[in-house]
Amino acid sequence: MDKVVNILLVEDDNLDVIDVRRSLDKMGILNNMTVAKNGEDALALLNSKTKSHEADLDIALIDINMPKMNGLEFLSTIRKMDEWKDLKCFIITTSDEKVDRMAAKELGISGYIVKPLKLNNPSSMDAFNLMIDLMNFKSKI
């Protein structure tokens, strides 16, 4: 039986939300995706999940450039939270800067995906495929 993957997407651009949703659909990943508009909203969401003991997230996709709290700040915050420090996180961003890559790597990410998700952009596809593999593995348990 295919399992539904629980995904948290932290992304402020609606277009990118559609992009991710569309790509997952195309890959045939059954998912239950929660969207937060920025790091603060996402943190609030995680806190409410902690309170109601719903630690049901499988994976988080985090944009870097967002208002209020950016992706890297959010990532470093949850790495200090007992409930969420082991959550598998992927960065999904337009920034291909080395600084951002290094900072994200130090925060223990599982992959760095460069937007847009296109077949002619290998650097985005490698990490995205890795993510898909991970989800497939999850969803086939």
Partner: peptide, 14 residues
């Protein structure tokens, strides 16, 4: 300028 262009490009390709 790149960001909105990329958005339009995405939508067109979809």
């Amino acid at each position: 300028l790149k960001a909105p262009l990329r958005g339009i490009d995405n939508v067109v390709s979809w």
